[in-house]
């Protein structure tokens, strides 16, 4: 008779056992803020469809300290999401070969962050131009 009895270790709390996994759970957790911010926007959109008074009520709610506090947290979380999104990009996209050499990881991450910076600036300028 076989004496084999392979022992399977439980996975409970695996994400606490390694700093790499802790960071992974934090950057996955930014999705909660992306969802919450999308919900805030969706609510605003529904108020907009209901007319001026409803919309102004939503605008007023945005001025409450709770809302400002939430948006500061969301800014930090979604900013961190952006950073980690581009940080993992060298692993998720096909290798880019420039001049016969493979583009190093830092260049891909840096390029992504630069694109995010440029897109953000463009968005701000567009909003500023439309509002003026």
């Amino acid at each position: 008779m076989s004496k084999r009895r392979p022992y399977v270790r439980p996975m409970d709390g695996w994400w606490r056992k390694n700093p790499y996994f802790v960071e992974y759970m934090i950057h996955e957790g930014t999705a909660l803020f992306v969802a919450a911010y999308a919900a805030v926007l969706l609510f605003g959109l529904l108020r907009l469809a209901q007319g001026e008074a409803a919309w102004n009520g939503w605008l007023l709610a945005l001025k409450s300290p709770w809302s400002i506090g939430f948006h500061l947290l969301a800014l930090a979380a979604i900013g961190y999401h952006a950073y980690t999104w581009f940080k993992i990009m060298p692993r998720t996209m096909p290798p880019l070969v420039v001049g016969g050499k493979r583009l190093p990881a830092w260049a891909i991450t840096g390029g992504g962050l630069a694109a995010a910076g440029a897109a953000s600036l463009l968005l701000f300028v567009l909003v500023w131009g439309l509002a003026r």
Binding site: R91, T92, M93, P94, P95
Partner: peptide, 22 residues
């Protein structure tokens, strides 16, 4: 889910995360 740790620990720098995500 693109954890990426596989590629960190690979002793031969194979970058399995890249192969899987491609």
């Amino acid at each position: 889910t693109a954890v990426g740790y596989c590629s960190e620990v690979c002793p031969k720098h194979v970058d399995p995360a890249n192969a899987v995500n491609l």
